[in-house]
Design a protein around this nucleic acid. Sequence first.
DNA 1: CAATCGTTATTTGTATGATAATTAAGGACT
DNA 2: AGTCCTTAATTATCATACAAATAACGATTG
Lengths: 253, 253
Amino acid sequence: MNPGNLHQKKPLAKTNDSNLHRKLAQSIGNQILTGVYAPGAILPNEADWCRIYGASRTTVREAVKTLNAKGLLKSRTKIGSRVEPRENWNILDRDVLSWHIAAMDPREFFASVQQVRKILEPEIAALAAANRTAAQLRTITQAFEDMRSAKRGRDSVEPDVRFHLALLAAANNALLSPFGIMIESALTNMFEFTSTHNAEPDIFIPRHENILKAVARANPKAARRAAQILLDDTDTTIAGFSKAAKAKKPRKS
Amino acid sequence: MNPGNLHQKKPLAKTNDSNLHRKLAQSIGNQILTGVYAPGAILPNEADWCRIYGASRTTVREAVKTLNAKGLLKSRTKIGSRVEPRENWNILDRDVLSWHIAAMDPREFFASVQQVRKILEPEIAALAAANRTAAQLRTITQAFEDMRSAKRGRDSVEPDVRFHLALLAAANNALLSPFGIMIESALTNMFEFTSTHNAEPDIFIPRHENILKAVARANPKAARRAAQILLDDTDTTIAGFSKAAKAKKPRKS
DNA sequence: CAATCGTTATTTGTATGATAATTAAGGACT
DNA sequence: AGTCCTTAATTATCATACAAATAACGATTG
């Protein structure tokens, strides 16, 4: 269960993120997400981590607290830290999600994401149409304009993300906001993997425009439909990429 | 921005949860959720917290790390800790959600929850019908049986929660799992506030049974419809309670 | 005057070493 | 077989340093 050699320091990844305890949290978090430590397993104790990473106990403890706070661990006196069952993990946490993505087959991840997006985004669009304020509409509109003027390529990612997040904010339901991270990650990573983001900007721009118009008209049904159509097109893009990339990535379990 | 008197120790709530850093995190978290420290505000620095709570800096720092990990804060050298904008909060985290509930008007909270439940639960039921394993079906069935034999009152809460969580697990999409906490909290708190949980168990039991049957038959459409019907009944129950409780709770901002 | 460049002060970050509290596990005694 | 006590392992807390980052200020200079 423990790594074979406790006395050999870990390389600690390449992140520029200068905090040591953050790096430790990332390293340990990655190991949990990749299954090095499975749910139910007891992790090395604090003294072990100190030796493994060559860090002080203070720092190790802060990293462990971070992972506790994200639901990955539960620490108890005399027991140590036990990995929590997956359903307790805060998967929509920014860090946890990024570790999760790193540990997964990208195609699987996109499939999960699209499933959730298809459930939520049409309803988010409908809620936005119903509940948006004037200011929120302006934010959505601005994002759309920026997306249109960027036209294609990497520059269109940021306004595209902003558009969807603005829509989410306009839905005015705090319980939905964690999905912002998922949406952001999905759109950004889609670019990373397809490296073309929107294969056909000439199609995607009007699709977004239809959502915008429906939200501007305060027409929930139309907004819902427009969002569904955009998502179907996105599915098509992913399917194309997925087929093209099929040869790679065998992956274990 | 800071509380008037830094040198007067906080009472630190009544939780039996024996960890000091956990108590600090709860206390500070509560203050953030109730708006004592609004998004964008700089919190007292670590030395201040030490004085306020009479705790060591180590402990204070662990509490602050916890809140950082939940997206409530971001700490930077020489700046201190700044409250993050609401959309970055991990609202579906168990702790954050409980602080949120404590800080909100219960009726508002239920309205938000029901809105999300109505979006997700029918689709969760449909996914469960489509993707469930045999073992998952057994878990759902068991929960239902326990719920039926409990019949009414407080005893029916736990199996009811278990039923919905089992359904969620059977949907087999990790990105949906954070909602388990919301569902759990919604059902549990509904009991706390109505103190009758299901007003009419004779209605709710068959409603749940219909979901179970549809999932057993692997019929997504029927499962979706059955879940919608249950939620509509739940709405009715809440509406009744909400009307009855209208006189109370003026609440400030 | 405006802009640049050090200097300083404040705050978080990391380290060390000690003690306390919790509790699983094993042993002693019925 | 069960109950109670002791022990040991581990996290929890504390106190005290020093390091590192950087915002704020002020001096210097073009």
